[in-house]
């Protein structure tokens, strides 16, 4: 064992590094492939109803009578009690910032100048820490903080399609919640 101590493992590091320049200059052969696959994902009754209610300008949750949770995003089963959930319940469109990020990187990993404000909002009327991810707006990045009260800003009714983006973003809630 003692003699091995000095030697050090792994003893060597096999592999051939290729730089982006090697690829650009076609120093290495490669095959380029652009897969084309389209999907139609079944949303299931819970998310289907949830998105339909967003179109109406409302947020809806499901309740589990056993653990007394008001669950949002809603689901037809409670994953902890492992039983069907029991009823629908409209909740508010206000909530609390659970966490957030000020993103200088967009969905395609491109650098952006004006940051995207993104976070998780727990919705008033649901159980603690029950909510979803969304954007923030009508605020400076430095105003955004964990624990901040926020309210949904909806798209005009005509523009809503039954999607999470029917809410444009959440803005600061001021003046007692109205």
């Amino acid at each position: 064992m003692m003699s091995m101590k000095k030697e050090g493992y792994p003893k060597y590091a096999p592999g051939t590094h290729v730089s982006r320049k090697d690829i650009r200059n076609k120093n290495k052969t490669y095959t380029w492939w652009e897969p084309e696959v389209q999907y139609s994902w079944a949303m299931g009754p819970a998310i289907s109803r949830f998105l339909q209610e967003l179109k109406n300008g409302k947020i809806i949750a499901r309740c589990c009578n056993k653990c007394d949770r008001v669950i949002v995003p809603p689901r037809m089963f409670c994953e902890y009690c492992y039983k069907p959930t029991d009823k629908w319940l409209y909740i508010k469109d206000t909530g609390t910032v659970e966490t957030f990020s000020i993103a200088y990187l967009d969905g395609d990993a491109r650098r952006i100048k004006d940051p995207i404000l993104i976070g998780v909002i727990s919705i008033d009327g649901a159980s603690p820490q029950h909510g979803f991810m969304h954007y923030f707006g009508e605020m400076k990045p430095e105003e955004l903080h964990i624990g901040m009260k926020v309210k949904a800003v909806w798209k005009p009714e005509k523009e809503r399609t039954g999607a999470i983006t029917d809410i444009k973003y959440f803005k600061p809630l001021k003046g007692g919640g109205k």
């Binding site: 380029w32 492939w33 389209q38 139609s40 079944a42």
Partner: peptide, 16 residues
């Protein structure tokens, strides 16, 4: 609505 349409866009460069 029961379905949501989308894709899984990504391109690949397979070195030989």
């Amino acid at each position: 609505p029961m379905h949501w349409r989308g894709n899984m866009q990504a391109d690949y460069l397979y070195l030989s």
